[in-house]
Design a binder for these strands. Structure first.
Lengths: 157, 157
DNA sequence: ATTGATCATAAAGATTCTTGACGGTCAAGT
DNA sequence: ACTTGACCGTCAAGAATCTTTATGATCAAT
């Protein structure tokens, strides 16, 4: 497993650095917002549009009980709203009201600014390449996540 | 704030996707190892060599009490070792013993494999570019983290 | 109308994190 | 040598989150 292309090894090493760095930044952002890590994850999910509580749980890897408490917290600080679904009266749709977006974006913009600065020396072509690399990387993460989910040899001690 | 270069906006958008994806993968990996998220963060930190408990706390954003409990957990499952420092008898050095590395690497290798697959179509030059992009990205995250740390306008509600 | 599944919620128990207090150790100054 | 102040790691108590389990409401299918 270590007789690999050294360039690929460099790449995986770099990806490890990304994991660690992202982990810490997200932690910091959550603290800035005064919310929990899972809450921030939920907000990230809701950026793609309103979601039902059960869907949030599926995507965030949380049980239904946790989601209820989580939405309670976010609702309490006014970051999200709860609405009953019109098509399924069991379901609850959670969304980020327009007035809350500035609060969320303000934090990510801090990181966004650092990103822009780091890449500002790149020419347009370089920016497009970087964007594509990051998208490919994110897709690979999702890929790996699904694979791990399936293999499910829990703990495996 | 939205009158930006559209290419830069694309980049920040892609980075948001990376945050979300990494967050979920790390969560999954931690669950696979049967450890907590913070424990995995600690392991990531210890990959750079043995660290004192206080240093772990600083880097992981944890209080000293949390670090004690955290190292207890990791030690209990045999992933790390505690040794007293020879230069400062107050200090405790924590390290990953050689025999534990396979356990940690095995999990990241799952992700690593997905990464390699996603980028395997790239030529050598492309791989180097991707590696550099990821490293720049990680650096930008650290950068942003430090900046947020300083600005410290907590919660800011 | 009935059955079984799904949805969101609530309560109880387990686990983690923070806070504050403690004893041991170090370094600097007297 | 001794004292002072700071740092280090640990411990115990309290707050907060997550999971599990149980419950009522709603849906879809028979």
């Amino acid at each position: 497993m270590n007789e690999q292309d050294p360039l690929l090894e460099e790449l995986t090493q770099a990806s490890r650095e990304v994991y660690a760095a992202v982990d810490l930044v997200e932690d910091q952002i959550a603290k800035m917002l005064g919310i929990h890590r899972s809450d921030l994850r939920c907000l990230n999910i809701l950026e793609n549009g309103p979601q039902s509580a059960s869907e949030i749980g599926r995507r965030a890897n949380l049980t239904s009980g946790s989601v209820t408490a989580l939405v309670d917290r976010l609702e309490r600080v006014g970051l999200v709203e709860r609405h009953r679904s019109s098509t399924d009266r069991r379901s609850v749709l959670v969304n980020i009201p327009d007035r809350s977006y500035p609060r969320v974006d303000a934090l990510y913009s801090q990181v966004g600014r650092a990103i822009k600065e780091s890449f500002q020396s790149a020419d347009p072509a370089g920016l497009q390449v970087a964007t594509e690399v990051l998208r490919t990387f994110a897709a690979a993460c999702h890929n790996a996540q699904n694979r791990i989910e399936e293999s499910k040899t829990p703990t495996d001690q």
